[in-house]
Design a protein around this nucleic acid. Structure first.
Length: 194
DNA sequence: TTGATTTGACCGAG
DNA sequence: CTCGGTCAAATCAA
């Protein structure tokens, strides 16, 4: 990891810059969200409080718009976070069902969600879509960072570190120091270049 | 026992 | 109505 200096370094830097741009965009998005918070989608608390019957009050939710979603293709659904499956659906034109996951720490306020669907091109790969961000404390656990590193998903890593900074302290996360990047960072999904 | 997964019902959007 | 997303009871696993 040391002997290849300039070309890799350059690439790395440009990746970091891209990541930073991305996080900046997301920060803006997050900020907007906070501003007009409350009538977005899923005003869960208020609705749940006034829930009458509990029993057949299923699904007081709104369909997810294309808010802030990030797509990624990977050969594993593992990304270092603890997810809890809450549903699975057969999708109309798809061979494989779509699985729905939320963060295990939802009860602590973490709203991160993801959807996983196997690709139809025969490869054993998965199309993963992330919604929202982790507000739980996952980031203090180092081993999970290395998981992320293994999967080579730099952008996701950066996004979350930024998220972490927003929610906690602006000081640089010391855990980053050990990370070595896998150069195979091929999935180019531009998330939201609309 | 607790926590995670399975699975069919339910809901809102279109 | 159909379809995708979510809920929650039943079930499984540790």
């Amino acid at each position: 990891m040391e002997e290849t200096s300039t070309p890799n370094k350059k690439r790395l830097i440009s990746q970091l810059i891209r990541g930073r741009d991305c996080t900046k965009k997301l920060q803006n998005l997050l900020h907007r969200r906070v501003v007009d918070d409350g009538r977005r989608w899923d005003s869960d608390e208020s609705e749940k409080k006034s829930a009458p019957a509990v029993k057949d009050r299923r699904g007081c939710y709104k369909r997810r718009k294309t808010e802030d979603s990030r797509d990624k293709i990977a050969d594993t659904i593992e990304d270092g976070y603890a997810w809890r499956k809450y549903g699975q659906k057969d999708i109309l034109d798809a061979k494989f069902p779509r699985c729905y996951y939320r963060c295990t720490h939802k009860d602590e306020g973490c709203r991160a969600l993801k959807q996983v669907q196997k690709l139809e091109d025969g490869s054993e790969m998965f199309h993963i879509t992330y919604f929202g961000f982790h507000t739980c404390q996952n980031f203090s656990r180092n081993k999970q960072m290395f998981h992320i590193t293994n999967s080579g998903d730099l952008s996701f890593f950066l996004l979350n570190s930024e998220d972490f900074k927003i929610n906690h302290s602006p000081s640089s996360p010391s855990t980053i120091t050990n990370v070595h990047l896998t150069p195979s960072f091929e999935k180019e999904d531009d998330s939201n270049t609309k």
